[in-house]
């Protein structure tokens, strides 16, 4: 009898342990999948993968020339020596939320933490789970090649006072769940403003022209006006036109998006129809503004 009870206890313990392990594994898998989805929506590869040179996934991007110097998207694979393998979840959270690196130093805002700070804690955790799950690739990226005096990180203290507002995006009461979801995806995850809003002389987003296009974007990009202005923006576009563009990269007149947006569409093409629709609903609600002058 005692032997039977013992066997039963062992079996129960094994089942419980096995069950717990399975749940933990399943939870991690789900977090990784959610993180992969967010990484696609946020087009992490755009800056962190050198696609043109056939570089490994997220092992470092191509040079990104800006008026302040040339940035190199860092290796964010879990390689301990050259990537973020030594970063804890807290380190990663601080980078995304506060724009500070693993040593606590201010990060250059070429890394768009001004948008990523709007992410939820849960989404940041999922992104971390995903990034720690991809193959570690040893690839040392060069340091950023900044023009004087922009490479001096303490200067960023003042910059952040002017242009950085930390914290998750709060839903707007009175707007639909779909609109709020679209706003979250556009503002926090896909960080649309980082390209479609022009920058002032100090490199801060000039939100007086929010979404009105940036003719002098990074990498010599001419990002268009995507406000609802009928002449210069997307005023004549239907929501479905935006959904189609985010899915296939094709505009209503049959053109194919180019430049950085082609990379963005590689990610937004992987989103659910519901999320693409939510982004479209939000983008269509942006007040009309004329195109940012050159």
């Amino acid at each position: 009898m005692a032997r039977r009870v013992l066997a039963l206890l062992i079996l129960t313990a094994l089942a419980a342990t096995g069950g717990w392990s399975f749940s933990a594994f399943a939870a991690d898998d789900a977090a990784i999948a959610r993180g992969a989805y967010l990484a696609a929506a946020g087009d992490c590869t755009g800056c962190h993968t050198d696609k043109k040179a056939g570089g490994a996934l997220l092992a470092g991007g191509r040079a990104l020339p800006t008026p302040f110097g040339t940035f190199y998207g860092p290796n964010i694979t879990p390689d301990k020596a050259t990537g973020i393998g030594k970063w804890t979840a807290a380190d990663f959270h601080r980078a995304m939320r506060e724009g500070k690196n693993e040593h606590g130093s201010f990060m250059f805002p070429a890394f768009p933490y001004t948008s990523f700070t709007n992410l939820t804690d849960a989404d940041i955790a999922d992104l971390y789970a995903y990034l720690q799950s991809i193959p570690a690739v040893a690839h040392q990226m060069p340091g950023h090649d900044m023009k004087m005096p922009f490479g001096w990180r303490p200067l960023l203290f003042g910059w952040r006072m002017l242009f950085f507002k930390e914290g998750p995006l709060q839903p707007v009461a009175g707007q639909s769940d779909e609109w709020n979801r679209g706003r979250y995806l556009a503002e926090a995850v896909a960080h649309c403003q980082e390209c479609h809003t022009p920058r002032n002389l100090l490199g801060g987003l000039d939100r007086r022209h929010a979404y009105a296009g940036d003719p002098h974007g990074a990498d010599k990009q001419d990002a268009p006006n995507i406000t609802s202005d009928k002449k210069d923006g997307l005023g004549d576009w239907k929501e479905d036109d935006i959904v189609d563009l985010l899915k296939s990269g094709m505009t209503p007149d049959g053109d194919s998006v180019g430049g950085g947006m082609a990379e963005v569409v590689e990610g937004t093409g992987k989103l659910t129809d519901a999320d693409r629709k939510a982004i479209a609903v939000y983008i269509k609600s942006i007040p009309p503004l004329p195109k940012t002058p050159k």
Partner: peptide, 13 residues
Amino acid sequence: CGACHGAYRTKSS
């Protein structure tokens, strides 16, 4: 179309 525009056109759309 998209591959070429993505790599070789400065205008995003």
